[in-house]
Amino acid sequence: MDALTLSREARILEAILFVASDPVSEESVSDVTGFSRNTVENTFKELREHYEKGHGIVLRRVAGGWKLFSSDDVFEVVSRFQKDSGRIRLSKAAFESLAVVAYNQPVTRGEIEEIRGVRCDRVIETLLATGLVRIAGRKRGSGSPLLYRTTDLFLREFGLDSIAELPTLAELGEMARHRTADDDALE
């Protein structure tokens, strides 16, 4: 599709995406433009298809909205331009704790420690500091421990539209069993 063939709606959405620094939701675009939700959804799809054809940027859905990204094939060069991309660096322990929060949210520190088998206070502090995890109240019961949840930043950082995009716990359990079986076979 040629750029000139984009509909007026698509050009408006393209401009909104160009100026936005956060993912753009259909709802917010619909509110601003007055286009129906259906029109907005279809127009985003039109734009996504448009960018899939030989462009240096791609349009993807993350954290409940749409966002423009550089395409994978130009990463090496473009990353030299965007030297300080502000990426969050995490340890393996942080990834583990984050996985536990993502799959069990809202979850207490005690529950994370129960699964990981190690103390997690420092790791949780790190996750809170990075903004990948937030406090979501207190659990009722003895001690009223804090509850933790993942944030929209977590979805953005991991390229997820929602938590539901991750494999289910049952699927993970299956993968883990396969892995153990493979390891046993190798031994």
């Binding site: 583990e96 993502a102 716990l169």
Partner: peptide, 16 residues
């Protein structure tokens, strides 16, 4: 108990 989360950790690392 932890095994699925170890897989999840690796998925998250790959996704990141």
């Amino acid at each position: 108990l932890f095994a699925p989360f170890r897989v999840a950790r690796e998925i998250l690392i790959l996704r990141k």
